[in-house]
Amino acid sequence: ECFSKHPLQNRWALWFFKNDKSKTWQDNLRLITKFDTVEDFWALYSNIQLASKLTSGCDYSLFKDGIEPMWEDNRNKRGGRWLITLSKQQRHAELDRFWLETLLCLIGEMFDDYSEDVCGAVINIRAKGDKIAIWTQEAENRDGVIHIGRVYKERLGLSSKMVIGYQAHADTATKSGSLMKNKFVV
């Protein structure tokens, strides 16, 4: 019993994206590995670069096994994301902590009965400002989306004055920048 690993509710896949403009978006996306125990998660986390050490243009994505980290996947296309945008200063102070908290929320199934709505999470390392998002599978599932957003905000330790927004992928795909519309905020 002492030596058995602790199983997770789901098997998770960690993906890595490195921006190489000579290749297609999909060719730049690589599956690193899959894991389904607490111990194997830490073995992986301890052996990869911290997000803050990645070069600009890179992403990590952690998704449930069978869901690809792209809008087009059947489990994502009706969904959306709770988006955390970080200032350049936050890369030093908070980026790695926020990403680790995000990973723990996912693998620990910390969104109660709505954990089933979660598809995965993405971190984008960008010169203009990093982003972290939790993706859920159904943007119209208001109760689930709001619950996940509230728990997530609390886990990150964000102040009640800070507002985070949820955007449907269908809207994100057709709009950008200031035109991006928040479907929900918490």
């Binding site: 602790h6 111990e39 073995a43 986390y45 301890s46 723990l104 693998i107 910390m110």
Partner: peptide, 20 residues
């Protein structure tokens, strides 16, 4: 039975790997 783990439980395992 669903496998749920809280933050502190999960973090406890990080130190096992950090000390190896």
């Amino acid at each position: 039975e669903k496998k749920r783990y809280d933050r502190e439980f999960l973090l406890g395992f990080q130190f096992i790997f950090a000390s190896m």
